[in-house]
């Protein structure tokens, strides 16, 4: 009687396994890259790039944002934006202090 689920996307098993394997490969990759010992800013940049890629795969396909309404994606992006806001404004203080931790 309630058969019209237009919005519900059913992912194929192949797709899901593909994403799972991609995530595995990226995990191996990030461990390997960390082992190389890249110079300072590049190691963290590389690690974060891989982590973000993995996060994108999980959010888009496992969590189904790719097929979902745009608003749910907006929520996720919004949350990240506010997190970045919090960090960057806090860093405006902590990076520019005369005295790192005020002494008591």
């Amino acid at each position: 009687m309630m058969s019209e689920h237009h919005g519900h996307h059913v992912a194929s098993a192949k797709q899901l396994w593909g994403i799972g394997i991609a995530l595995l490969i990226l995990t191996v990759l990030t461990v390997t890259v960390a082992g190389l010992g890249l110079p300072s800013p590049f190691d963290i940049l590389m690690a974060m790039t891989i982590a973000l890629t993995k996060a994108f795969l999980v959010a888009a396909f496992f969590m189904g944002l790719y097929w979902d309404t745009k608003f749910n994606s907006m929520l996720l992006i919004g949350a990240l934006a506010f997190f970045i806001l919090m960090v960057s404004i806090t860093l405006l203080d902590t990076l520019y202090r005369d005295d790192v931790v005020p002494s008591f």
């Binding site: 404004i89 405006l92 203080d93 990076l95 520019y96 005295d99």
Partner: peptide
């Protein structure tokens, strides 16, 4: 509170 002058101004 002792936060940086940069942050205070902004």
């Amino acid at each position: 509170s002792g936060q940086s002058a940069v942050a205070t101004t902004i």
